[in-house]
Design a protein around this nucleic acid. Structure first.
Lengths: 344, 344
DNA sequence: ACCCGTATTGCACTCGTGTGCAGTCTAGGC
DNA sequence: GCCTAGACTGCACACGAGTGCAATACGGGT
């Protein structure tokens, strides 16, 4: 009678494996714990028995005793913003490198935000990553009190123990301004994100300063506050900004993200019959995949999504090991990608 | 001296709450367990104490004892496919209604797939949802052995215990064909997804059958196998399909998803200078947000993302309660959204 | 042969929670 | 006043794992 009684009652426990391998439960535990002391011989026997039984460590039980799970909350403001979505893949991948798993929280609705964040705590997450303009910062206070590491992507924090990794938004604004000015634009406009967004403000600041620095006297600059940071929002802003006599119409526009730029671009050429970039040049921000299509061919500022994700996870992991380190900020370089909506 | 010693050592446990409320730990547990027997009086005292201590149930510990977590794995094939991304939000929301949380697994790389799925098991997930063309089905076998509920969105399964919820792909193909034929197209083409994709095959089948059913003798139909289901893939296929004399060029094309259609559309009008829909009509599938922009204005078949997510979660939850029910299939209706790339 | 340092091993306790069981309390009918 | 059903409550055990500590085994130097 062979050992055909494998895979019996569903989940195998470490005790099952121990019994089959003829060792103590401790040995099994140590086999699956990195850095623990097990002889190669027993280790091999345990692994064999585990394989035969289809044993998988119960990470929940492990988390209970270690008083920390291997889950990391990822808080996103809905899935509309393609840029945030692009972060998800790299984030998941980088977390996996540290044996962490992403727990996805969609915080589109600010009303439910508080309860969702509290809910996340029930899983004793090892850390949280907030992306872009997601949550009012006060809500993160409870995390800080409990010393749950927090990292933010493209947000400011101004808290002593919250790491921030952000694209160099200001530099991006500067690049955009230089590009437009060099292309000959003199009536500039900046289409911002909804008010209060950190990214939007920084990009605008860089843009404005570069315009001032240009030293060109005849140059004008107009700042427009967007309400919705998507295609329709771009169309709306364009309707308001382009419905003027040509001499008062902007001839160079910087949109705080690509979706806004798409909307603005389409409105400009289809609704107002303008030629781009001859009558008006447009620069976006993000470089989402659609920006490189022939129909848009949008000149834009590229964010390094991979680097943002890598740094965010890196900082978070460091903080898990050393929870009291002071807040650090990583600024990721951005890059101008010239395409067909600008002259340079 | 007031009770100012609240929020002491980080995480409060049920024992802390019990002590503060002057009840047993069981009472605390029952207060946070739906349907358990607690008197309104003690319940109130427990809640008060819990509030004061900032107590949050430790779902990990709960999961250990209940031998099942409240985590649900969501397996996606990368974040390129916008349609899949659109599912994420509604899925998360519907899961939340059942006190479940989504554990995100990016299975873009088929090589790592097996290990990622195994890893997911370590969290004793309460169920798994596979989206679109993600994983070779054999990999799900281990889940079935362990009786972990599995649901699939827009995939076939042909397994006795795997629920399937899918858009009515076949009907979608039919709608596309009818739309093109009614618009006068006679040389039809179907641009498929990469080979073996369930959705792609079904859509093609519906398309082909509708063409056959039309009874028009002079009609021709060409099937093209795509390799990459994105914008670049669409451009590639167009290059191959449109580089012919006009009388042999298709005049009506159905693309298996919107990204393919975008690429095909742009290639047709920009690379080949064709007028759409006069020279060639194009119909897509999905109705992602970009399809409604003025630049594309793509006629397409809309999938009901909300319904897909709702049904998938619903079936999964039912199966958690009743693990042995036979596999069920939910077919979600689709809808033709006529825009500017077709004549009807 | 003896001693000692090092590498393994197992015992037993621990983590924070759910839940069966038996005991206690309350209200209501007689 | 007594009895009984029903609603609560608490005790004690369970879940599946990590880990300090002491015990053991091993190897080498004298």
């Amino acid at each position: 009678m062979k050992k055909k009684d494998a895979l019996p009652k569903g989940w195998a426990t470490s005790a099952d494996v121990a019994a089959r391998a003829g060792v103590s439960r401790s040995a099994v535990s140590r086999t699956f714990t990195e850095g623990a002391s097990v002889s190669p011989a027993t280790r091999a026997r345990v692994l064999k028995a585990a394989e035969e039984l289809g044993y998988q460590v119960n990470r929940l039980a492990r988390s209970v005793i270690q008083r920390q799970s291997s889950l990391v909350g990822i808080v996103v403001p809905g899935m509309q913003n393609e840029f945030v979505v692009q972060l998800l893949g790299p984030l998941a991948e980088n977390l996996a490198h540290h044996s962490l798993a992403p727990l996805l929280i969609d915080a589109r609705d600010p009303a439910q935000m508080a309860s969702k964040l509290r809910y996340l705590l029930q899983y004793r997450v090892a850390g949280v990553i907030f992306t872009s303009g997601s949550p009012p910062i006060e809500l993160a206070q409870e995390y800080l009190r409990l010393r749950v590491p927090v990292a933010m992507i493209n947000r400011d924090a101004n808290l002593e123990s919250v790491d921030v990794v952000t694209s160099d938004n200001q530099e991006g604004g500067t690049l955009a301004a230089d590009c437009l000015i060099k292309g000959g634009a003199r009536r500039l406009a900046y289409v911002n994100l909804p008010s209060g967004t950190y990214s939007g403000i920084s990009r605008g600041a860089g843009f404005s300063e570069a315009v001032a620095r240009s030293g060109i006297a005849s140059i004008s600059l107009e700042l427009v506050q967007g309400t919705i940071p998507d295609y329709a929002g771009g169309v709306d802003v364009a309707a308001q900004l382009l419905d003027r006599p040509p001499e008062r119409r902007p001839d160079g526009v910087f949109c705080a993200n690509d979706l806004l730029a798409f909307g603005f671009l389409d409105a400009a050429r289809y609704d107002f019959g303008l030629r781009v970039p001859e009558d008006i040049a447009i620069v976006g921000f993000d470089d989402i995949p659609m920006a490189s299509t022939q129909g848009f061919a949008l000149t834009t500022i590229r964010q390094d999504v991979e680097a943002l994700a890598r740094e965010a996870v890196g900082l978070l992991v460091q903080r898990m090991a050393e929870p009291t380190t002071l807040a650090r900020t990583r600024r990721i370089p951005v890059q101008l990608v010239p395409r067909a909506t600008s002259k340079s």
